[in-house]
Nucleic acid binder design. Structure first.
Length: 320
DNA sequence: TCCAAATGTAAAA
DNA sequence: TTTACCTTTGGAT
């Protein structure tokens, strides 16, 4: 899934595109028909992210909680006068070049045609669980692992299970540092535990540990507290940058040497949208999906192994 | 046309 | 620790 930075980006996008007027909420696919009926016609009054959870607040104290899971995605289309148009946020789907293609959709949703001030609303593509339609934009959700209407109390309960989120201003770094140091579970596994730190995924895990020079397999309690704190501080910088940029980039400019295609096409295919000036995906990471390639720092081959069902990447020389 | 992979998590065993 | 689930995509067949 998109990691926490993507979800924060989504929260901002919903606030700017949909806050205000009553929304039409539907479930083209049908699997969220009941929830959509409950929300239809209500105004969006809040848009929040905590880790990988997105909470859209509707009048009447109801919240739409969505989680993109491994391959969920939101796809947006906007009217020409929309304040901001983001055509696709999520993963894994390649959207290179679509920035220009969805402005004038070739297929128009007949049920909404003529009711949106002349703006042509595209028909849902694929298995769209939820569609939010506002005055200036439409958002379609596909493939989520969670999509439900909850109360404020239920939202609080979900948040109570999450660790601090480095992107949020209210995050408490001390909680993270203390928890990591209390457990013998490896630092690599703890970083993927949303109860320890919310929003970190497989890429930020691998990259933050490389930048800190910490072996992912070291027990959390054996990592010096100052090093754990440094990892937190780095995550704050990296993840906030990711939310602003719309892509994960962890390499410093001086380390950005292309791999000459050695990684092969498609290794890191969904990180960037092809925006001019963006850091190419084969220069964006130190170790993620670079197993077998030389470490950007020391030249030793990057290592990989499966840990708790996820691929772990690291440099055995730089990370001790 | 088929199949594996993907920035994930919860439940079952 | 294994399985199930949700969906799209690109490369192989």
């Amino acid at each position: 899934m998109p990691e926490g930075h993507t979800v924060h980006r989504l929260a901002r996008t919903f606030a700017s595109l949909f806050a205000g007027p009553a929304l039409r909420v539907s479930s083209p696919q049908g699997r969220f028909a009941d929830g959509a009926a409950v929300l239809d016609g209500r105004r969006l009054v809040a848009s929040q992210a905590w880790g990988k959870q997105l909470f859209l607040g509707f009048e009447g104290d109801l919240w739409l909680r969505t989680h993109l899971g491994l391959y969920g995605a939101w796809t947006f289309a906007g009217a020409p006068d929309a304040p901001e148009v983001v055509h696709a946020i999520g993963a894994p789907r390649k959207r290179i070049g679509e920035r220009e293609t969805t402005v004038v959709p070739s297929v128009v949703d007949p049920t909404t045609e003529g009711s949106t001030g002349g703006w042509l609303v595209p028909s849902p593509r694929g298995q769209v669980r939820v569609r939010l339609l506002g005055d200036h934009a439409v958002a379609d959700l596909t493939g989520p692992t969670a999509c439900e209407v909850i109360t404020a109390e239920e939202k609080t309960a979900v948040e109570a299970r999450l660790g601090p989120d480095p992107i949020r201003d209210d995050a408490d770094a001390d909680v993270f540092v203390a928890r990591v140091g209390r457990s013998r579970v490896t630092i690599g596994q703890q970083l993927m535990d949303q109860a320890v730190v919310a929003g970190v995924g497989n890429i930020y895990r691998a990259e933050a540990l490389f930048r800190a020079g910490v072996d992912p397999l070291r027990p959390g309690r054996d990592v010096p507290a100052v090093a754990v704190r440094a990892i937190w501080d780095d995550l704050v910088v990296l993840m906030r940058d990711g939310a602003d940029r719309g892509a994960i980039v962890t390499t410093r400019p001086e380390d950005r040497v292309p791999d000459g295609g050695a990684a092969g096409p498609g290794r890191t295919r969904q990180n960037t949208d092809g925006t001019p000036g963006a850091v190419p995906s084969d220069e964006a990471f130190y170790v993620y999906h670079r197993d077998g390639l030389p470490c950007r720092r020391c030249g030793a081959p990057v290592l990989a192994k499966e840990l708790a069902g996820r691929n772990l990447f690291w440099c055995g020389v730089c990370q001790v």
